[in-house]
Amino acid sequence: MSFLIKSNFNILVTGFGCCKQEIFATQCSLYDIQRFGVNFVSVPEDADILVVQGFYNKKGIIRILNIYDRMKNPKGIIAVGSCVLNENLFNPGSELVSQFRNRVIINMHIPGCPPRPEAFIYAILKFLGISMQ
């Protein structure tokens, strides 16, 4: 079962923020995340993992929780960037993050503002348990 998920891994990226272009940059032929069997999808039902990044207000958090509920088991969350990780200008008081963390478990954090594409690939591979060459 885990082997199947490892070899064909679907990612859904939500939110908007600086990290997004770095995440989607991994699609291009220089980084080529697809060779590990990782695809970007657009429907929550098909996603194995939810990538949370960027800026959220109260409405955005509710939407993300809805999306997470629609995903099928087994599922997980990867948080990217310092907006979701800690308190900063675009996340004042970090109330929303704590509210978010109380509801779901974040499986992996990728620090950086924004993290480089290599960092994202490294995190995904670490998540899948594939050793980097």
């Binding site: 199947l4 070899s7 064909n8 032929s29 080529d32 697809q34 060779r35 590990f36 069997g37 594939i130």
Partner: peptide, 20 residues
């Protein structure tokens, strides 16, 4: 696309359709 295609699951991704 100047990419390599699926490398995973078997040599050069031969097993990939099966895995999918």
């Amino acid at each position: 696309d100047l990419r390599r295609g699926y490398k995973i699951s078997g040599a050069k991704g031969i097993g990939f359709p099966l895995v999918r």
